[in-house]
Design a protein around this nucleic acid. Structure first.
Length: 427
DNA sequence: TCTGGGGTCCTAGGACCC
DNA sequence: TCTGGGGTCCTAGGACCC
């Protein structure tokens, strides 16, 4: 049996842990740039504020009901996530951290204690140790555990725990669930399925397998098999190495200036390089994109993207920033109101055992240069990890020409002494 | 009238997830 | 005025190989 543990309204719950006055009130957390709703309390959902809804369109509702607004505080959410995961890790033999707020646990062996009792205990332990409320679904496959989790969350009578022990229980649950709510069935596929008379999860389970394979491809065929109790998605115990690393942001107000765009790209490239070193990887491909708003008038719409191969795979901030700026030069069109830009690193390979790496035939960088680069990056990371990111940075990485909107940011309660001290002084 | 068979690699686009 | 960010996988088609 698989258990899926999912934190309720996770980002809102994180804010509530440190500000209990928010309990019982409608609360939403906004995406970067304070644009869209990305987490909503139950009270906010009841007001009809939709997931992903743009905040400016709901200003009236937000004001009338005095909805508490928060800018996304990922430093806080990431740290709270690791607390939840650490608690869960002590309660099951194996688990897969599936997302910032979800984990699958292998429940094999716990039948003897009683799955129901043990699952309720997990729920209490996470609440006690972290303050975060969770819902738990149990079933013989991951897809059914997802489905059970949804029932646990939506239907109060389950009190946060739903177990589908056998085929009959699973079929009853599937009959009551729309096919579009099944894990792995998105908007396009659910439209297609609905057009063809497949309305519920049970309809999908019972559809002809050949037809499902043909139209929903191999991923859809797996979903169907899993709904029928045939487990084909195993727990992934170790996170596979990333294939790409991306940093991108929307701008608070449009950027037209090439130099300002260059600052932003240098900043994103720097962040990518830092993540890359954190992963212990080297990159050999740098992609940059810049774009105007998709809601912009047609003649001002532009999405430019281009890649450059690095002659030598690297994790050096300077080399990556140089490559990104060169790409930006090819991409830039004057006179456009740019709203977003980003940098993506690809062609990743592990940095360890780097003596085995492909070098260039016409190697322009002798070994000493590579060594001094590694030392420089070590020094850079050491300084910034001690005194804060951005303490030591390249000159191009500045924010005089661009910024994002972030007006309702809560303190980083668990990762910044300075911000905790500020709270004390304030109160 | 008529032009093979068996592959790999790469990329773009679509679909999905949180 | 104001609409997020970061990923993965799959497929089809093109280009190439012998």
């Amino acid at each position: 049996m698989f258990a899926l543990v999912d934190c309720n309204n996770f980002y809102v719950s994180c804010e509530r842990v440190f500000n209990p006055a928010l309990n019982g009130r409608p609360v939403v957390v906004l995406s970067n740039n304070d644009g869209c709703f990305i987490s909503r309390s139950n009270e906010a959902k009841a007001l009809g504020l939709p997931m992903g809804g743009p905040a400016f369109r709901f200003r009236k509702t937000l004001e009338e009901h005095r909805v508490a607004l928060y800018s996304a505080n990922f430093a806080l959410y990431g740290d709270m996530s690791s607390r939840v995961m650490n608690t869960l890790a002590g309660l099951a033999s194996t688990m897969e951290v599936y997302s910032i707020d979800e984990a699958f646990l292998d429940m094999t062996g716990f039948e003897r204690i009683g799955l129901d009792e043990y699952t309720c205990m997990i729920r209490r332990m996470v609440r006690r140790d972290t303050g975060i409320p969770v819902s738990i679904g149990l079933a013989p496959t991951k897809t059914l555990a997802k489905l059970a989790n949804r029932m646990a969350k939506k239907q109060p009578e389950y009190e946060g725990v739903c177990i589908l022990p056998d085929r009959e229980a699973a079929r009853r649950a599937m009959a009551s669930m729309e096919v579009g709510d099944v894990w792995g069935i998105g908007r396009r596929h659910s439209e297609f399925l609905n057009r063809n008379g497949v309305k519920t999860a049970l309809d999908l389970a019972d559809a002809p397998p050949g037809w499902v394979r043909k139209h929903l491809h191999i991923t859809g065929a797996r979903v169907q098999a899993e709904l029928n109790g045939n487990s084909c998605l195993p727990l992934e115990l170790v996170r596979p190495a990333k294939q790409s690393i991306c940093t991108s942001r929307s701008f608070g107000s449009a950027v037209t200036d090439k130099a300002a765009l260059g600052q932003a790209v240098a900043h994103f490239a720097t962040k990518c390089a830092l993540k890359l070193r954190g992963e212990g990887e080297l990159a050999s491909l740098v992609t940059v994109f810049i774009c105007t708003s998709p809601f912009e008038e047609k003649h001002l719409r532009y999405y430019g993207t281009r890649s450059a191969a690095l002659p030598l795979a690297t994790q050096d901030t300077l080399a990556i920033v140089r490559a990104a700026e060169a790409v930006l030069g090819d991409l830039f069109r004057p006179g456009l109101p740019y709203k977003k830009a980003g940098v993506i690193l690809g062609g990743l390979a592990p940095a360890s055992g780097s003596e085995l790496h492909q070098t260039t035939l016409f190697d322009s960088e002798p070994l000493q240069v590579q060594e001094s680069s590694a030392k420089l990056m070590q020094a850079l990371d050491a300084v910034n990890s001690r005194y804060g990111q951005g303490t030591l940075r390249i000159a191009a990485d500045t924010r005089t020409g661009w910024k994002q909107r972030q007006e309702k940011l809560s303190p980083r309660y668990t990762t910044s002494w300075e911000e905790i001290i500020e709270i004390r002084v304030d109160s």
